[in-house]
Design a binder for these strands. Structure first.
Length: 805
RNA sequence: GCCCGGGUGAUGGAAUUGGUAGACAUGACGGACUUAAAAUCCGUUGGCUGAAUAAGCCGUGCCGGUUCGAGUCCGGCCCCGGGCACCA
């Protein structure tokens, strides 16, 4: 009789749910294990087979850790604010909360059908008023710490749509919807001072068990550079122009200066003769999108301002230019140009015939343009002959002594633009009174979204909330307007910045989370999710967590101790799954046809979790076939347990196979090598398939091992064997080392490193006996006959190599 | 351009510290069962030479090195994937 996945899966899912089998104890004597998935945005299209990949992996680990005696926290929830629901609302008038609720229902159903062991009593939703309350509370903590401020910042303004667009809605300088032009215009925005935490975020990476690549990505994103600030005096305006450089050692080669067109000094530095040229250059630059300005390999443009600065190291007068290759938002918005050692400066110097002075001797045979390599300083007076590092220290010391500069550190990281001109997000709990912001008191939280009739933006670029005067206008008792509410809302990142803390204590009405529980559960032991969140989500939530740590609200500096990125599942054609390609595999059909367990083990069996790999219908079938095979080994035709199963005889080979399997599965699980675990189960199943007699205890042990991977099948088998205990909490078996290897082992014999034969020896055999046997092996003799044996090597239990001449 | 990954059969992929390359699965081929097919079971399956499940040679992107021995370590190249991109 075939394995009836539909009936069996339903039965056990019901059992788990009714009995709250996976409920985590709030605080327990058991060691804790917090295993977290990146929670999904519940989109309207539901899951495709790639989405649950990470959830399968975490579920396996969660179940494994329960078997290992851990109190496991394994929660799931919904990152439910977001643009698609709002866009749908604009189109149809359906409240985003309605759409969101429907979508969550569908996602929950799809996730539940895979039999995951989530503690559903801790389910959270970032749009719940109780959740929003604490998101806003954290915002207030940031505000009170001086980390939230307002600024005029360029946004993506689309005049045609009368809306501010998110970066991801702008493609090649045009709106994603409609293809209308998008301009960068300054608008009042809320910013979070993540730059204050640049050093902390950088340092925090060091002890994290994260993929090397993600750490590198974050380091590059933070972009720390060490160098010096150097002051160049400008006699014409009696001011100093400060520049940041990582190469102060090349100061003697600074032959001109360049400022960003937006630099505040530009106006006063422009001489009357240059006025027209400068004005039109600035005009042109402001019209360019960021994309145009950063376009690769483009020719350098710029205009001379007519004024000069004094190179502090040699007193030379050097011209000051503006060019859009210098950006205002990094460093001081101005540079000293050293064309001899910087390719961009070289290109600019060539274009405008500015002088080039080399200050580092290029290595022999160098035939490039700017030289950025190592070498002794030249044309640099007191630095001559010094290599780069020494020259840097010496010149920096000189600058400090002369009061013309200082050591400086710069970061590429910018402050976080935190406001969105949207409806479907957390309102920012701020009231503007007399033109200055004042925060809501914590007692007034949550600040809820008002009901609106239209979800379109206000047409001024403000959020739809700006249209609701009764919400915006804050009145006193006599009805006078005393303030205006902030109409911007928070970005989708906000809710996901701290959700892992709410899971710890989801029902708490007094606080975001209880300290004792936080102390018990944090940090997250294993966090699995897609690599697309390598920077933003993981940097933003680390930032919030660092702040909460400094404020004493959390007990660990870092939230996520170990991180792992699952790879993408591609379509059968080897390309990314997408509706337009028509290669989307649907988990509903897969589960309906083959069952949840088959889908679970197939996704694990496909290959290493972190790799991108194509879906294969036949591969999936193979896994379904395996489940049936195992079922048919244990059950006879009429669905009764086979009478091969008994309590007495223990077959030595089967026992050894069992212990080898336990060892490999345990080791592989610890390393998240799920694919090889599945093959171990196949190997063991192939082994017992032909056996006429099967020991009951061996089977029971095997069932515990497969339970994390195929929980429905395992539960059914457990019960069929007459077990009454809750399988989830059975102890994971340990393996007996003495059973792992047989008494005799096969050893390959090489002659000059080439395998020529093999011999069977006792595992305990002495080296000289093994070598004697190896040399007398007839296949080996043929290759050593008549030759001189130079060396004989025996690696115990592995290999023999005889070197002959 | 810069920074990370990665190149193993027809395919997805295995391979402790360097120690029998190709586990497990898919596909293909052959066989059993069947009126037939599906399902299931058994066998073969890296390439070349060969009648051969005799024997040998070659083989982990390419070239070179270290070593008794290299998929694994070192140097140089080629290709693919991801990220960043005028960051001074």
């Amino acid at each position: 009789m075939a394995y009836d996945h539909k009936q069996i899966e339903k039965k056990w899912q019901q059992h788990w749910e009714d009995n709250h089998v996976f409920r985590a104890e709030d605080i327990s004597d058991k060691p804790k294990y917090y295993i977290l998935d990146m929670f999904p945005y519940p989109s309207g299209s539901g899951l495709h087979v790639g989405h649950p990949l990470g959830y399968i992996a975490t579920d396996i680990i969660a179940r494994y850790k329960r078997h290992k005696g851990f109190n496991v926290l394994h929660p799931m929830g919904w990152d439910a604010f977001g643009l698609p629901a709002e866009q749908y609302a604009i189109k149809t008038g359906t409240h985003p909360a309605v759409t969101t609720k429907q979508n969550i229902g569908n996602f929950r159903r799809q996730i539940k059908m895979l039999g995951f062991s989530y503690d559903w009593d801790r389910e959270i939703n970032t749009t719940d008023t109780e959740y929003v309350k604490w998101t806003q509370w954290i915002f207030l903590q940031l505000y009170h710490k001086g980390l939230a401020y307002e600024a005029e910042v360029p946004v993506n303004w689309c005049p045609e749509l009368k809306a501010v667009l998110a970066n991801e809605e702008v493609v090649d300088g045009k709106s994603e919807i409609g293809g209308h032009p998008v301009l960068r215009v300054p608008m009042r925005q809320w910013m979070l001072k993540i730059t204050d935490y640049a050093e902390s975020l950088l340092e925090g990476l060091e002890d994290l068990d994260w993929p090397h690549s993600v750490k590198e990505l974050q380091r590059n994103w933070i972009g720390r550079s060490e160098g010096a600030n150097v002051d160049f005096h400008i006699p014409a305006i009696h001011k100093d122009l400060t520049v940041f450089t990582t190469r102060p050692d090349t100061l003697f080669g600074a032959t001109y200066m360049v400022m960003a067109p937006e630099h505040p000094f530009v106006k006063e530095l422009t001489t009357p003769e240059q006025n027209d040229a400068v004005a039109s250059y600035i005009e042109a630059a402001s019209k360019k999108s960021d994309l145009d300005r950063t376009e690769l390999n483009k020719d350098k443009t710029g205009v001379f301002l007519g004024n000069y600065a004094i190179n502090p190291v040699n007193g030379n007068e050097i011209p000051i230019w503006i060019s859009d290759y210098v950006i205002m938002s990094y460093g001081t918005g101005a540079i000293m140009a050293v064309p001899g050692q910087d390719q961009r400066d070289w290109d600019f110097a060539k274009a405008f015939e500015l002088p080039i002075v080399r200050t580092v001797e290029p290595s022999d045979g160098f035939d490039g343009e700017a030289y950025t390599g190592e070498g002794p300083a030249i044309n640099s007076d007191f630095l001559d002959g010094l290599y780069v590092e020494e020259a840097k220290s010496k010149i920096t010391a000189w600058l400090i002594e002369e009061g013309k500069g200082e050591k400086a550190i710069q970061y590429k990281l910018r402050d976080w633009l935190f406001s969105r001109q949207r409806y479907w997000g957390e309102p920012i709990p701020i009231i503007h009174r007399d033109g200055s912001p004042s925060p809501l008191s914590e007692d007034d939280l949550p600040l809820l979204l008002p009901e609106v009739e239209k979800y379109e933006p206000a047409g001024t670029g403000e959020s739809p909330l700006a249209n609701i005067s009764e919400w915006v206008e804050v009145k006193d008792e006599s009805g006078n307007i005393v303030g205006l509410r902030e109409t911007n809302t928070m970005p989708q990142w906000a809710g996901s910045c701290w959700y892992y803390l709410r899971y710890i204590d989801p029902e708490n009405a007094e606080k975001g989370w209880n300290e004792a529980k936080e102390k018990y559960w944090m940090p997250v032991d294993l966090y699995i999710g897609g690599a697309e969140h390598a920077v933003l989500h993981l940097l933003y939530s680390r930032f919030w967590h660092h702040v909460l740590f400094d404020l004493g609200y959390v007990s660990t500096k870092e939230p996520f101790q170990k991180l792992f990125n699952q790879g993408m599942i591609l379509g059968q054609d080897g390309t990314k799954m997408s509706k337009s390609r028509g290669n989307v595999e649907n988990p509903d059909e897969t589960v309906d046809q083959f069952g949840a367990d088959a889908m679970r083990i197939y996704e694990m069996f496909m290959g290493p979790l972190e790799k991108a790999k194509p879906w294969s219908a036949t591969g999936l079938q193979g896994c379904a076939r395996f489940i049936n095979k195992l079922w048919n080994v244990l059950f006879n035709e009429d669905g009764q347990l086979t009478d091969k199963i008994n309590d007495d005889s223990v077959d030595e080979h089967t026992l050894r196979a069992l212990h080898q399997m336990i060892k490999k599965v345990s080791d592989n699980l610890d390393q998240l090598h799920f694919n090889t675990c599945v093959s171990e189960f196949m190997i063991f199943t192939n082994h017992i398939q032909s056996k006429k007699s099967l020991n009951r205890e061996i089977l029971e042990t095997f069932i515990i091992c497969i339970n994390p991977f195929m929980p429905h099948l395992a539960e059914e088998l457990w019960k069929a064997l007459g077990k009454e205990t809750e399988l989830t909490y059975e102890f994971w078996p340990s393996y007996d080392k003495s059973l792992l290897e047989s008494d005799t082992i096969t050893i390959a014999v090489q002659v000059n490193g080439k395998r020529r034969g093999e011999i069977n020896v006792s595992a305990e055999a002495l080296e000289e006996d093994v070598l004697k046997m190896a040399k007398s092996n007839e296949k080996v003799t043929a290759f050593i006959k008549g030759k001189e044996i130079v060396k004989e090597i025996y690696v115990k239990g592995r290999i023999v190599n005889i070197v002959v001449r």
